[in-house]
Design a protein around this nucleic acid. Structure first.
Lengths: 108, 108
DNA sequence: CATCGTTGCTACAATAACTGTAGCACAACG
DNA sequence: CGTTGTGCTACAGTTATTGTAGCAACGATG
C-alpha cells in the first residue's frame, strides 16, 4: 500500500521532497478532493461521508481519511469528521473551483 | 476505460450532473493536478512533460492530456502542450496550494 | 440487562486504473 | 538516406480501487 505523502520525502513522480509535490500527490488520489469538498459545509460521520460521496467503498474512504488526518487536514471529533484550521485554509485555496466549473458548464 | 467527465453528465460518485462534481472527478485523477502544475511555467512537449512528471508512463500521460484537451484546459500548439485561457484561470484557483504546502512543511 | 441502531472500521476477492518497456509513424535536419 | 525529435499506441504486469460482508464498541430503549 502506498503511504501518505509528506513534505521532505520523495513521492510518486518526484524525488526532490518539495512540499508542493507531496501535496499534489496527496490531493491527486481518488476521492481526496471530493472528500474535502463534502466536509466544507459541515462535519460528517464516516457513514454520512460515505453516502455523500455516492456510496464510496469504506475501504478506500478509510484510507483517504487516514491520509488526510496524517496531513492534519481533517480530524475526527464528536460531531464526526471535520476540517482542521489548516484544512479550511486549504479548502479556501480551491474554493474558486466551483465558479470555474459553472463557467465550464456554460461554455459547452 | 473511463471517459472524460463533463458538466451535465453523471460522474463517478455523483449522478446529479453538477459541474463541480465533473471537475472534482477530472482533477482527482492521478497526475492531473501535477500536469497542470508543470505547465504553469511554460509550454512543454509531450516528452518534456513526461520527464517533468518523473517519467510518467506515456500511456497515462496521453490519457490525461486527452481529458484536459476535451475540457479545454490544455491545448497542443507549436510550442508544445499549453494551458488555455481557461486553463490558466483554473490554475489561478489553486495557485495558493504552493504556499499552503510550504507552511505544511514548516509545521512538521 | 437484553436488544436494537449507530458508530468507525477491517477482510478479502474481483475489477479497473496505472505502469514500464518497446516500438511505430511522421517530420525536420544534415 | 541516416539521425534526431516529435506525438503517440500496444500490451503484459502490477497496483489501486471497488463491493460485499461483517465485526467490535457505544448509547439508547424496552
Amino acid at each position: 500500500m502506498t503511504s501518505t505523502p509528506r513534505p521532505g520525502k520523495p513521492v510518486r513522480g518526484s524525488k526532490t521532497g518539495r512540499p508542493i509535490m507531496a501535496l499534489l500527490d496527496l490531493l491527486g488520489r481518488r476521492w481526496q478532493l471530493r472528500i474535502i469538498w463534502e466536509l466544507s459545509r459541515q462535519p460528517l460521520t464516516f457513514r454520512d461521508l460515505q453516502t455523500a460521496c455516492g456510496d464510496i467503498s469504506p475501504t478506500i474512504l478509510n484510507t483517504r481519511l487516514t491520509e488526510l488526518r496524517e496531513a492534519d487536514i481533517v480530524t475526527l471529533t464528536n460531531d464526526g469528521y471535520t476540517l482542521t484550521t489548516e484544512g479550511k485554509n486549504l479548502l479556501a485555496e480551491f474554493m474558486g473551483l466551483h465558479d470555474w466549473a459553472e463557467r465550464w458548464a456554460k461554455r459547452r
